[in-house]
């Protein structure tokens, strides 16, 4: 399962499960999804590692993110929103 669209306005976040993708596909999918990210909406990126290059791009382009580590399955969840929302 690569990408699951959320229910939009209902508040369920759009999720990109990039754990089975080979670089640079995770970044490619994330940047594409950012094009359609509405203010107030959240995009989640699931990975087995921390995406440092992506952090830089988010920082310098007006996005806020928070990374959560799920110890059970070693998954990193990057929660991305427009900064200030």
């Amino acid at each position: 399962m690569a990408e699951q669209a959320g229910d939009g306005a209902a508040g369920a976040p759009r999720v990109i499960d990039a754990r089975d993708m080979v670089p640079p596909e995770p970044m490619e999918r994330t940047l594409e999804a950012l094009d359609f990210l509405e203010r107030g909406e959240e995009l989640q990126l699931w990975l087995n590692r921390e995406p440092f290059p992506l952090y830089r791009i988010l920082n310098t382009n007006g996005y806020a993110y928070r990374t959560e580590y799920i110890e059970d399955d070693g998954r990193f969840i990057v929660h991305i929103r427009h900064a200030g929302h």
Partner: peptide, 9 residues
């Protein structure tokens, strides 16, 4: 928009 993203670092 993607092409305008900054990759400066």
């Amino acid at each position: 928009m993607a092409a305008e993203l900054s990759f400066e670092q």
